[in-house]
Write a protein that binds this DNA or RNA. Structure first.
Lengths: 253, 253
DNA sequence: CAAAAACTGCGTAAGTGATACGCAGAAAGT
DNA sequence: ACTTTCTGCGTATCACTTACGCAGTTTTTG
């Protein structure tokens, strides 16, 4: 099922795009790519990415693992498609008359929401630039937000990569913290109060003065009350930086 | 070998930090954590991350796979330590009297250089915030760059996360492109000239107008002549955004 | 209508990988 | 000398991905 045709994409991707003709010979299919993908997502949602194996997905479908290979060439391919479907369609941005900053911020928040709901997406090894339908749709929407700002095509792409990179990075780091806190179900007498204290136990104060200055304030030992604070901080910096660039173009939407 | 003590870190991490006492009974060790880590790195450097297995590392060391478990509790632990060692020590920033922006930019570039030399680092699943020696050292150095700028501890951490997130994301995206180009060794007659063309073959122009506007310019079909261009663009945006924030603090280094 | 072609599902199998368990021997402590 | 701790590793289990090919289904072709 790795029959690449004129599009250069794997056949399963063409299926996802709806540009591949259905076979017209052979028995009726008992499976479908959509069902396989949906099942992979359900397993990941319930038990995390590591639980997603070809065998597991097949079992959930009441099929044999090898039959999945009629639809996807490799497990990696299935995971890529699962991530794409899990992303879902992009937000409706920009609204008519909406300024670029507001639109892009909404886009970023929507991506963040989606990733936080399905953190396993970020664990999927990616082996190429986005070529799946939803990923591409999200790209288009972000690019629309910065059209008419005076940025050239390369810069618009740069902005897209910057913002999406920030979002994914932010959620990834948050996920790491969430995971560490869940893993903190260690024997009670060995459990430290937080990350900062753990660091302080091994990191020499004389050698890491700036880090200790931060640890001493306690910010590394507790979650901030507002779960959006870190994200908003970073997003504002990014948008400020983009705004500075757009300002140099003397063009406003 | 998952004997957590007062630091709350895995024993192998304590070894990496040099805060774990060496056992004083039993036969002389034929292996060492450093050698195991170095071997894992050598394999990853030569053949990529997927080639790194406990069996492969053991074979390279002339040992049995199970003996590695005297030193690390899991393969994930080994990979985390390998990534840390591969990162190496941080750059010497800030220089005396160096302004925050220059220092932070140098820090970012150094991280980028390291990651580009060893792209496999970005493929390692990470399951918690940094607790290994070099990672922590890099953190400290970045924090030093923004000390004295008027940012509070939380904001300094936010800046660190923003910059490192940007660097890693930038290199990851670049790696995806590099990988796709290497994978483009497909049958010649099915090979398109570039990513943009592949997208154009499936992405409907009416549905994705902003994306097509970018594709039409050709920027998605060729590598830019300057391999630093994308990175510098993003870094400048990020630094501009941070600069805007620091400006509101009315404090200058 | 029969044969050929294409397709579907899946049984069997091979190879690989991570890691649990426990043995035997080495070295230090009592 | 005996006990304790540690090291290396043989054996084994379980799980996973995917190659190969068989048998049956369905459409197309002559």
């Amino acid at each position: 099922m790795d029959q690449r045709t004129g599009t250069g994409l794997p056949a399963s991707f063409e299926l996802a795009w709806g540009v591949r003709e259905q076979p017209n010979k052979g028995p009726k299919r008992g499976l479908s790519l959509d069902r396989i993908i949906a099942t992979a997502i359900a397993v990941a949602d319930a038990e995390g990415l590591r639980a997603v194996s070809m065998g597991r997905v097949a079992t959930e479908l009441g099929a044999a693992p090898m039959s999945l290979y009629r639809y996807v060439a490799t497990k990696d391919e299935l995971l890529t498609l699962a991530a794409d479907a899990a992303y879902g369609p992009p937000p409706d941005v920009p609204l008519p008359g909406e300024d670029w900053r507001s639109a892009l911020a909404r886009w970023a928040r929507a991506e963040r929401d989606g990733l936080r709901a399905r953190r396993w997406i970020l664990q999927i090894p990616i082996s190429g630039p986005p070529t799946t339908p939803n990923a591409v749709a999200w790209m288009d929407r972000a690019l629309r937000c910065v059209e008419g700002t005076g940025l050239d095509a390369g810069e618009r792409m740069g902005v897209l990569l910057l913002v999406t990179g920030f979002v994914r990075s932010n959620v990834l780091i948050e996920s790491q913290i969430v995971e560490a806190m869940e893993a903190a179900g260690q024997p009670a007498e060995t459990r430290l109060d937080g990350y900062g204290k753990r660091l302080a136990a091994v990191a020499d104060r004389a050698r890491f003065p700036a880090l200790h200055a931060v640890i001493d304030t306690g910010v590394l030992d507790e979650e901030s009350g507002d779960e959006n604070e870190d994200f908003d901080f970073g997003l504002d910096r990014v948008l400020d930086g983009i705004e500075a660039l757009i300002g140099t173009r003397s063009l406003r939407p």
